[in-house]
Nucleic acid binder design. Structure first.
Lengths: 185, 185
DNA sequence: GCACTGCGGCTAATGGCATTAGCCTGTTGG
DNA sequence: CCAACAGGCTAATGCCATTAGCCGCAGTGC
């Protein structure tokens, strides 16, 4: 292989650095190129467009998150798994607030992000397995879990809660609220 | 007053039309100007910048939503008020998905959006009044209510739930889940 | 060792958008 | 009637994405 200072994966990596340092709205080909020490048009040798780079970043983040969340639920089941999944989700978002915002809102509707979206979905389904819910109940419970987790973490990451005091308690309350709504496993 | 085809409020109105028709990401001064039948720089006679227009639109939407939600809870209290507020919130987001996305994430941190943010907050606090929670519990409950409502509606508005089937049931489940977590009023 | 090929970088050019500067006109208060 | 100004316009700048086309170097086949 010829000397490649950059690759598609490398560009995505630099994009993540830009997002971490300057926020999602600053994810621009110009910024990525500057960060990589390269001229803007050179990036087109590795990515097709800014839109595609955004997709790649989104996939990368979803895979990252799926991996982290898997670690959090492995070896656990029932209430323990659910609580651990929810705490790990929040921890990820707190650690990488701007990356979380880079995830596509509807990954399942775009072939490019579908696979990563399902990976993430599987983790949620896995955490609920011990409750032995039927198909419909599983769908409802997964949606509730996603809604609660996404709702709290996205507001928190955006600084949408007025004061940061007691946020841990609030989240624990949400966790208990959700667990209480599930049948005993 | 001289003949004003446009005014600040008028520009905001046109901006809402653009958002409704083309989505939030298409809210551009060029698009607003075209929609208003005016040259782009002319808009600067009414708004200071695109950023300010976004703020004004956000305020307008928050006030709109606060009004709608107030109508939904007026004359109700306790579980009835909470359920009605949650249903009305979802109805608003379903009716105006792109407007909802135009709301600032942290209105309380910007003087320009603070007042409207508090208006909205008051509606949520009002719905919880009958439970006579102490200060800390009120904060937790309000946050939970916001998180659940925002989480579900934002995912739904973005098309983030794979299939639309049974979404009503899922949401009713969330409403019951939240109500069950509150003390009997 | 050497010409060949293609990867991966570059510069130049185009077009969209925000923003600023400065001009022009019709309305209006005096 | 006149002066002032609100409110519109054109021209110009600068940033960004994207495209076209050029160029050098690494490794391949000889």
């Amino acid at each position: 292989m010829p000397r490649a200072r950059l690759s598609t994966a490398g560009v995505v990596e630099v994009a993540l650095a830009v997002i971490d340092e300057q926020g999602l709205e600053q994810l621009t080909l110009a910024a990525v190129a500057a960060h990589a020490g390269v001229a803007t048009p050179s990036l087109y040798k590795h990515v097709a467009s800014l839109a595609q780079l955004r997709n790649l970043v989104g996939v990368r983040v979803m895979e990252d998150m799926a991996e982290q969340l898997t670690l959090a639920v492995v070896g656990r089941s029932g209430d323990d798994a659910v609580a651990s999944l929810m705490r790990a989700s929040r921890a990820y978002v707190v650690r990488h607030p701007t990356r979380y915002a880079a995830m596509p809102a509807d990954p399942l509707h775009d072939p490019a992000t579908q696979a990563a979206g399902y990976k993430l979905l599987q983790v949620f389904l896995g955490a609920l397995r011990a409750y032995r819910l039927d198909d419909a109940a599983t769908i409802h419970a997964t949606r509730c879990l996603r809604a609660i987790t996404h709702g709290f973490t996205s507001i928190e990451a955006a600084g949408g809660f007025g004061l940061p005091e007691g946020l841990d308690d609030t989240y624990e309350q949400l966790i208990q609220m959700f667990i209480a709504s599930l049948p005993r496993p």
